[in-house]
Structures are given as structure tokens and as C-alpha cells.
């Protein structure tokens, strides 16, 4: 499977639950695909207009195809800028996931894989009262047909791995 085919599969997978935009610029950098999902959780009594609580979860998926992998792309400063642009920690904000999906057309080196697994980013807003934001990094090694993720990305890795098998 080549990178374009895999990209197409991601597009099809995200299509049902995400609003998708091709060629989106975020924090000054270009991404091949941007997916946005919002999940509203609320409780109402008797009628929908009588809402007694509400919280909202978000996921932003940023997909890019690159020839090689470079961990420096995911610097602390850049991630801070992405979070500042995409995350609105309003009173009903619960959690936001920023999921970077990097489709790499060349084989990853061992130090790349180490760097991917070690990448951590988490931010809380107002000591957690306005929720938090976590970073997931999913890197697709096309030549090896393998997925590598950071710790936060493990919970969604299976979805991306299944695309390689199709």
C-alpha cells in the first residue's frame, strides 16, 4: 500500500464522524487533511430545553504525508501554538485531543521510533475545571506497514492499524 492509498483510507474512516477539510493551514503549517469532531454530552430533564449539565469533547485530526519523519516538527512551541489556535477551553469544555497522523514514505530509524514513543504533551485548563488537552502522535511507516504511536495514541492505534490490513 502506498501513502496515497492509506491517506484515502483515513479519509474514508474519518468521514462519518468528522468534518473534513483538505489542505488546511494550522499554526502556520500546512496539513493535507484536517478532521474535526465534537461530541456533546448533556443531561436534560423532561424536555431537551431543560439542560442541567453539559460537557463537550473534541478531537482534531491533523494528517500529513511526508517523505521522512522529523520529530523536531512536533516541538513544544509548535504544539502550544496549535493548542492555542484549535482549543477553546470554554466552561463546558471537557477534553480535546490533538491527533497528529504522519504518513511517512520512508522507513523510520530506531531513534525516530524512540522519539515517537517518548513524545508527551498534556495541558490542563484552570486546574482541570475547564478540562484538558492531550496530544496523540500516530506515525505510519508505509514501507514496513507499521504504526508507531506515543502513549496517548495507543488507545486509537488499532483503528489506524486496521487500515493497513484492508
Amino acid at each position: 500500500m502506498n501513502s496515497k492509498e492509506y491517506f484515502k483510507k483515513i479519509d474514508e474512516m474519518l468521514y462519518h464522524y468528522f468534518d473534513l477539510t483538505l489542505k488546511k493551514e494550522i499554526a502556520g503549517r500546512s496539513f493535507d487533511l484536517y478532521g474535526f469532531c465534537r461530541l456533546d454530552n448533556e443531561r436534560y430533564v423532561a424536555t431537551r430545553s431543560v439542560k442541567i449539565w453539559e460537557f463537550i469533547d473534541y478531537e482534531h485530526v491533523l494528517v500529513r504525508i511526508t517523505g521522512e519523519f522529523n520529530i523536531d516538527f512536533y516541538s513544544q512551541e509548535f504544539i502550544d501554538e496549535v493548542v492555542a489556535e484549535l482549543v477553546d477551553a470554554h466552561p463546558n469544555h471537557h477534553q480535546s485531543y490533538i491527533t497528529f497522523v504522519n504518513i511517512v514514505e520512508s522507513q523510520l530509524r530506531p531513534e525516530d521510533i524512540q522519539a515517537i514513543k517518548g513524545l508527551k504533551y498534556s495541558k490542563t485548563f484552570r486546574l482541570g475545571l475547564r478540562g484538558w488537552c492531550d496530544l496523540r502522535l500516530i506515525v505510519v511507516d508505509i514501507p514496513r506497514s507499521q504504526i508507531y504511536t506515543n502513549k496517548a495514541g495507543k488507545e486509537v492505534a488499532e483503528s489506524y492499524e486496521s487500515l493497513l490490513e484492508l
Binding site: 443531561r43 449539565w53 460537557f55 463546558n92 471537557h94 482541570g128 475545571l129 478540562g131
Partner: peptide
């Protein structure tokens, strides 16, 4: 007044 995921 606290978000529901914290306590409720």
C-alpha cells in the same frame, strides 16, 4: 457548579 465529570 463544578463540571460533572469531576464529582457527579
Amino acid at each position: 457548579v463544578t463540571p460533572v465529570w469531576i464529582l457527579l
